[in-house]
Design a protein around this nucleic acid. Structure first.
Lengths: 112, 112
DNA sequence: TCATTAATTAAGGAGTTGCTTACATGGCGC
DNA sequence: GCGCCATGTAAGCAACTCCTTAATTAATGA
């Protein structure tokens, strides 16, 4: 089951696809139309549209209408949240190891 | 389609589920058996086993047999990769904005 | 007005996910 | 060995994902 609603899940899920990550990378170069975005991929336009919908649902892009073009712009706030989660977990875990290391070292010292 | 093979996709996909993120959070407290891990969730054991398989496939945990228990241990290397990707994309994008800001400021100054 | 261009929506299909219950495996103490 | 644990695997099911092609919407410019 997915029926994910929480924001973090939506962001990680959006990042879990190589095509979508490539789109994000591409968008760092600046706002881009769907057609330009689709060009390097061997994939139909609708497929790209659907990927963009996933990214939009996760808050990672914004789409604004500009005549018959849709300009896609990157938003980084959700990336901040994702980054915060990952960093928090990684760091606290490493801290635990550092602590353990030190304790072991001390144990070893006192044994000598 | 999924049939993901690349490591980053596996990691993000693993992190895209709240139950699995909770398991990771729980594992920061130290290695834990599957039973202890399953206890706080209103979910069958096999469901937890399957979540653990996803985490293992992404390289986020290690399972070692210890008599009839399996001890699950957190691994943070994949988190490093995920964090690196997110940070890289976020930071470069913000740099672009900083640059744009500066350019606009300069433009404005020269106009006065 | 009408054809062209850009993009989305609709419908459908193959494969995956996330759960379930039932069954299998394998170590333990008696 | 036998019956208990703690887990894992199998099978099945509803929902979701990722793609397709065909039809639709909407703006443009002659």
């Amino acid at each position: 089951m997915a029926q994910v609603e929480d924001e973090l899940s939506l962001v990680f899920q959006a990042l879990a696809d190589p095509t979508r990550r490539a789109i994000i990378s591409r968008l760092r170069g600046g706002p881009t139309t769907v057609g330009e975005l689709a060009e390097p991929f061997s994939m139909s336009r609708p497929a790209i549209s659907q990927h963009l919908k996933v990214l939009e649902r996760a808050g990672l892009i914004e789409r604004t209408a500009d005549a018959q073009w849709r300009r896609c712009t990157l938003r980084t706030e959700p990336l901040d949240d994702a980054s915060a989660w990952v960093d928090r977990h990684r760091d606290e875990w490493n801290e635990r190891f550092d602590l353990l290391d030190e304790r072991l070292r001390r144990l070893k010292d006192s044994a000598n």
